[in-house]
Design a protein around this nucleic acid. Structure first.
Length: 389
DNA sequence: TCTGGGGTCCTAGGACCC
DNA sequence: TCTGGGGTCCTAGGACCC
């Protein structure tokens, strides 16, 4: 029997959870974002807020203009992850082939269900999620992941859409190419210049021309617009290893103050290093990201001869990269990322020198304090006293 | 309106080596 | 005067997604 793929997409996940845990928010335009008083964007707008034109990614300033009486709150990532894990537990009762795709999306694969039996199972899942969590989701069903994903978008919220093999263009042919997964703002403009606006236009466009213009990506465009996709559903237990661990921070205000920038860089390095230790990785490549006031952004990276996990090595490298590239202008954002990750168990990890062992013990204590009392409960000297950046 | 933060993947040029 | 060719590594940047 042909494989059947479900795409489960939680409806306005973050704001729905907030409305659920605080009855005062129900039925009101709730906007979950970063820090609502800082330079931030909308993470999730409740459906009440979407009526005013709000959507994910919109700057908070713009959102407040459109919806001044909205309730703007900063999110609780831990709460969302917890709920997400609970929901995945339910999904796994229906098939072992569950791929968590993000905190509010998952793919499910069924091998012996068929399209005739699929809607019944999907409705059962929707009912259970609603009954046990008070949350709604939308489900798309298709012969592959691309089609399932596109289908789940068609009847939101609380919708169920089935697109069988060969019927992709009947459902999506007249949609704008932007609706397709993997086609963003830039590509949409390029395609428009070729006279391609609708999914059907792209599906009918000659592939050799697309390849000439877009390279390998041209083939992807043609395939996606035709609803063709053979990517596998990767079950959660096959756990995909991360390629990089990074943190970045848009400063509360643009600044060229070196002390302030250095202490921010140090904090970022501590956070990255801490996550590496917590997740058991070492890294050999450091990347620093700088965004100036004019939004001009660049990165500089350095591959080291040896793997590291210590925050002082990370900071030393990041600082060198930063100082040798900083042009003195006011900076909007700083970022630090570690890549070339290797699981610590895969290399000999016992420190050789006593000083290293002491350092490691210190880090363990710091981590345990932060685990209990939060990231800001303990800091090292260099990151204190510069306005809390 | 004024643009977050976490990532992934791809491309392309230059260095370097055989 | 014209100056290989392929492979791999490193680095920078771009596009995209949630």
């Amino acid at each position: 029997m042909d494989r059947v793929i479900f795409h489960i997409d939680m409806d306005a996940f973050f704001s729905s959870i907030e409305q659920l845990s605080n009855p005062n928010l129900r039925g009101k335009p709730v906007i979950v974002c970063g820090d609502p008083n800082s330079r931030s964007v909308v993470a999730t707008a409740s459906y009440e807020a979407r009526l005013f034109g709000l959507k994910s990614g919109m700057p908070i300033g713009r959102a407040r203009q459109l919806c001044p009486h909205g309730i703007y709150i900063s999110g609780n990532p831990k709460k969302y992850v917890y709920t997400s894990v609970q929901i995945l537990g339910i999904l796994r009762q229906y098939t072992s082939r569950v791929e968590p795709f993000s905190v509010d999306e998952a793919f499910l694969e069924f091998e012996n269900l068929g399209f005739s039996g699929a809607p019944k199972v999907a409705r059962k899942i929707m009912q259970r999620i609603h009954k046990e969590f008070g949350l709604t989701c939308s489900i798309g069903i298709g012969p592959n992941k691309i089609i399932a994903k596109m289908a789940s978008e068609l009847n939101k919220p609380n919708g169920l859409t089935v697109i069988e093999e060969g019927r992709f263009l009947d459902f999506l042919g007249e949609k704008d190419v932007t609706a397709l997964w993997g086609i963003g703002e830039k590509t949409t403009v390029k395609l428009k210049n070729l006279g391609i606006r609708k999914v059907r236009d792209l599906a009918l466009f000659p592939e050799p021309t697309l390849r000439k213009l877009f390279g390998e990506y041209g083939t992807y465009l043609k395939m996606t617009a035709s609803g063709m996709d053979d990517s596998p559903v990767i079950p959660y237990y096959q756990g995909i290893e991360p390629k990089s661990i990074g943190h970045e921070r848009t400063l509360p205000f643009d600044t060229d103050d070196r002390d302030c920038l250095m202490s921010t860089l140090l904090r970022l390095c501590e956070q990255v290093s801490r996550r590496m230790r917590k997740d058991g990785y070492v890294s050999d490549t450091v990347t620093v990201k700088i965004r100036y006031r004019d939004f001009n952004t660049f990165t500089r990276q350095k591959k080291l001869a040896n793997c590291f996990e210590r925050d002082d090595i990370l900071f030393y490298t990041a600082k060198k990269l930063f100082l040798s590239n900083f042009n003195g202008d006011e900076i909007r954002l700083l970022g630090v990322s570690a890549s070339g990750l290797v699981k610590k168990t895969e290399i000999l990890s016992e420190p050789l020198f006593p000083a290293d062992r002491v350092h490691r013990e210190c880090l363990r204590v710091v981590d345990s304090i932060r685990d209990r009392f939060g990231e800001d409960s303990i800091k090292r000297g260099g990151s204190i006293g510069t306005g809390g950046l």
